[in-house]
Design a protein around this nucleic acid. Structure first.
Lengths: 150, 150
DNA sequence: GTTAATGCAAACGGTTTGCAGGGGT
DNA sequence: ACCCCTGCAAACCGTTTGCATTAAC
């Protein structure tokens, strides 16, 4: 395992990042960071909390949430929930994709008929049996672009 | 407006669908269905509830949820929340996409370097300024494929 | 010593569930 | 008349927030 070596290098990075950002390097942040560097999957806040709990039994789940939010701002992790707002219902049950305005949150349908499995790179085929594809384009819609420019 | 004509045709469909599925065609279901056919956007359960409330002041939000779930099963609407489980955190902050196993819920990273704005169809460019693209492939991963076949 | 971060608890928002009463077939 | 469906209320789950205490700088 080269985890130890990596760990030291990353630790230095974290220290520097905290310095630059003007935030404190606490026990909790350190342990959460270590845990994040150790895992290679996509952990939830709850899972991280569970794992850290062995080392820091008093750590609270909200600290994990706060720390992960901080790390997200620092660019250390990325929140995965693409549409973490409420569940929406689509009356259009045909295959299509979505353009989501980052400004007004409007969702527009995208039809892209010739986007199929053959469009996907080879690696994907090696991962398993593809059932469906869904593309989310995030950007600023024309309406918002027009109203924002004065 | 050809809403009226469409409405009658759709109504017949709904009646038939309910018959086939062996469920009752209630006031609430009818109104929710009508509302769904009238809108062309992506409404939330709450929004539908608000709109229906004018016609059926006693309707409860949980009825809307239950009805939408029923309609989802019947194939009349599609739930949009792609990853409606908890928020996950990605330690990998480089641009990549995801393969999500519909069976074990595992998330695998997909690298597709030559997938950029030029890959997108023309229509998307007309929608606004694209900031990011995220592709979600849903399917069954190799592990699940292997364990499921006896 | 200052200031920011933590732990606790309680609130939050969207969604789901148990139950008794009401409406559709 | 039957049973499914609804409305009500309360629980649920992941997440966020206010506040007093604690720890990093």
């Amino acid at each position: 395992m080269q985890n130890e070596k990596l760990s030291k290098q990353h630790l230095k990075q974290l220290k520097q990042l905290c310095n630059e950002a003007g935030i404190k390097l606490t026990h909790q942040r350190l342990e959460i960071f270590k845990e994040l560097m150790a895992v290679c999957d996509h952990p939830s806040a709850e899972l991280i909390h569970q794992r850290i709990h062995k080392k820091l039994p008093t750590i609270a789940i909200d600290t994990v949430y706060r720390t992960l939010a901080t790390f997200d701002e620092l660019g250390l992790v990325k929140k995965l929930h693409i549409m973490n707002e409420r569940t929406l219902f689509d009356t259009n049950v045909t295959i299509h994709h979505h353009f989501i305005c980052t400004h007004c949150k409007k969702v527009e349908d995208i039809y892209w008929s010739d986007f199929d499995n053959s469009t996907l790179p080879e690696v994907v085929k090696g991962m398993g049996k593809v059932q469906s594809r869904h593309l989310e384009i995030h950007g600023v819609c024309n309406d918002c672009l027009n109203t924002n420019e004065k």
